[in-house]
Design a protein around this nucleic acid. Structure first.
Lengths: 135, 135
DNA sequence: GCAGTATTTAGAATTGTTCTAAACTTCTTG
DNA sequence: CAAGAAGTTTAGAACAATTCTAAATACTGC
């Protein structure tokens, strides 16, 4: 469906991570169905409901490792809370202010012109566009 | 220089805030010289070096009130740390990843085309563009 | 299977921020 | 300009999100 093999142990190994039971359980929750935005707390609640519960520390570890391995992208939209996005393709975000909901939109149609060149001695890493909306 | 009156008590009153000694001291640090990006901790260190030190709680209170009053803008770039920007005009940000430095750039020249329309029932609040760069 | 290394865990520690209740300013109004 | 009312400040406790610690456990290659 999403072009990713459902063989999570293999996917983890390919990313340089040992396919432990906990990491496989988390990967399943994250990547099995379409794209998702999760917080550590939220994912921990989900995985606790599973036959294979995982400690909160491990959820944090796994999210950070998945991000470092390029399997996830971290999105910072609100102070004091990190979202992890399973969509690692080019795209931007809607952030619905009052309730903290986050939605992707593709960057295909979006063009940004006139950006200044990066300060001397730095090179571009990524351009984040966050469209904040209110009800 | 920046078009703002240096009469901080009056400016605070105009924003609906009592010009207490502490708020005036903070306003002076924030608005007296050009635009700045500060964190609560950083501003607290600065004001402690003053003849009129202010508690950390008051720094947090003041930053939140100044933001609510439209004197400051909060910028969310990194998890677990809030920056406040004294530049409230239209502009975007460079974020230098390793060291957490933040720089403004004007939005005059920047054009963003092809943004999708906000989800039904919401209206646009603001578009943040963060250009992340690495050394 | 066995060693050897990586990972998990519960709980403590850390960090950034907000809350609390008492003391102190500022404002209003006479 | 005194007095009361209302808003602020403060130190310290409380809180929330995240990271660390050290001991127990699971994966891996041989």
């Amino acid at each position: 469906m999403n072009g990713n093999s459902p063989d999570f142990p293999a996917r983890l190994r390919a990313a340089g991570l040992r396919p432990t039971r906990q990491r496989v359980a988390l990967a399943r929750l994250l990547f099995e169905s379409g794209h998702r935005h999760v917080t550590a707390e939220g994912l921990h609640v989900e995985v606790k409901a599973t036959r294979m519960p995982v400690s909160l520390a491990t959820v944090y570890n796994a999210l950070n490792q998945f991000r470092d391995a390029g399997l996830l992208r971290e999105v910072v939209v609100a102070p004091g809370r990190s979202y992890f996005d399973t969509n690692i393709g080019h795209h931007h975000h809607f952030f619905i202010e009052p309730d903290g909901e986050l939605h992707d939109f593709p960057s295909d149609k979006v063009t940004i012109a006139g950006l200044p060149t990066p300060p001397k001695g730095t090179r571009l890493s990524r351009v984040d566009v966050i469209v904040r909306v209110r009800r």
